[in-house]
Amino acid sequence: MLDHITPLTGRNSLTPNKYTWRFLAISRIDREAKPCRLSVEAHTEREARKVLAPHFILSFAARLPVEVHHV
Rank of each mutant, 00 (worst) to 15 (best):
Tyr19Glu: 02
Thr9Ser: 09
Pro65Gly: 04
Pro54Gly: 09
Val40Lys: 00
Leu24Gln: 11
Leu58Lys: 02
Leu38Val: 12
Arg11Leu: 14
Lys18Ile: 00
Glu47Asn: 12
Leu38Asp: 00
Ile57Arg: 15
Ala48Met: 08
Ala48Asn: 04
Ala25Asn: 02
Ile26Glu: 14
Lys34Trp: 03
Leu24Glu: 12
His43Gln: 15
Glu47Ile: 12
Pro54Tyr: 07
His55Lys: 07
Ile26Met: 11
Asp30Glu: 11
Leu64Phe: 04
Ser13Thr: 14
Val51Leu: 10
Pro35Phe: 06
Thr9Pro: 01
Leu64Thr: 12
Ala42Gly: 07
Arg31Trp: 05
Val40Ile: 14
Pro7Arg: 14
Ala33Met: 09
Val66Asn: 01
Met1Ile: 06
Leu8Asp: 12
Ala62Thr: 03
Thr15Met: 07
Arg28Ala: 06
Thr15Cys: 06
Arg22Val: 04
His69Ser: 14
Asp30Asn: 15
Ala25Thr: 01
Met1Asp: 10
Ala33Trp: 04
Thr6Glu: 13
Leu52Pro: 02
His69Asp: 13
Ser39Lys: 09
Thr20Val: 15
Pro54Cys: 10
Pro7Ala: 13
Leu64Lys: 09
Ala48Cys: 10
Leu8Gly: 15
Arg31Glu: 13
Asn17Pro: 11
Phe56Ile: 06
Ala33Lys: 12
Pro54Ile: 11
Trp21Ala: 00
Ser39Thr: 09
Ala42Pro: 02
Thr20Ser: 08
Pro65Trp: 03
Leu2Lys: 15
Gly10Ser: 05
Ala42Asp: 10
Ala62Cys: 04
Glu47Gln: 15
Arg37Cys: 06
Ala25Ser: 03
Thr6Met: 10
Leu38Met: 11
Asp30Lys: 13
Ile26His: 10
Val51Glu: 07
Asp3Met: 05
Leu8Arg: 10
Asn12Val: 06
Asp3Ser: 09
Ala61Arg: 00
Thr20Ala: 06
Ala42Thr: 03
His43Asp: 12
Ile26Pro: 00
Phe60Ala: 08
Pro7Glu: 13
Met1Tyr: 04
Val40Met: 01
Gly10Arg: 05
Trp21Gln: 00
Phe23Gly: 01
Glu47Phe: 05
Leu52Glu: 02
Arg22Ile: 03
Leu14Glu: 10
Ser27Phe: 02
Pro7His: 14
Tyr19His: 14
Asp3Leu: 07
His55Leu: 07
Asn12Phe: 02
Arg11Val: 12
Glu41Leu: 02
Arg63Thr: 04
Thr44Gln: 06
Arg37Glu: 13
Asp30Met: 06
Val51Thr: 14
Pro35Ala: 09
Arg31Gly: 03
Val40Pro: 00
Ser59Val: 08
Leu24Ser: 10
Pro54Gln: 09
Arg37Met: 10
His69Phe: 13
Met1Gln: 10
Trp21Pro: 00
Ala25Ile: 01
Thr15Pro: 02
Ile26Arg: 15
Ser39Pro: 01
His4Tyr: 05
Arg49Trp: 01
Thr15Ile: 05
Leu24Thr: 13
His4Gly: 05
Ala48Asp: 02
Gly10Trp: 03
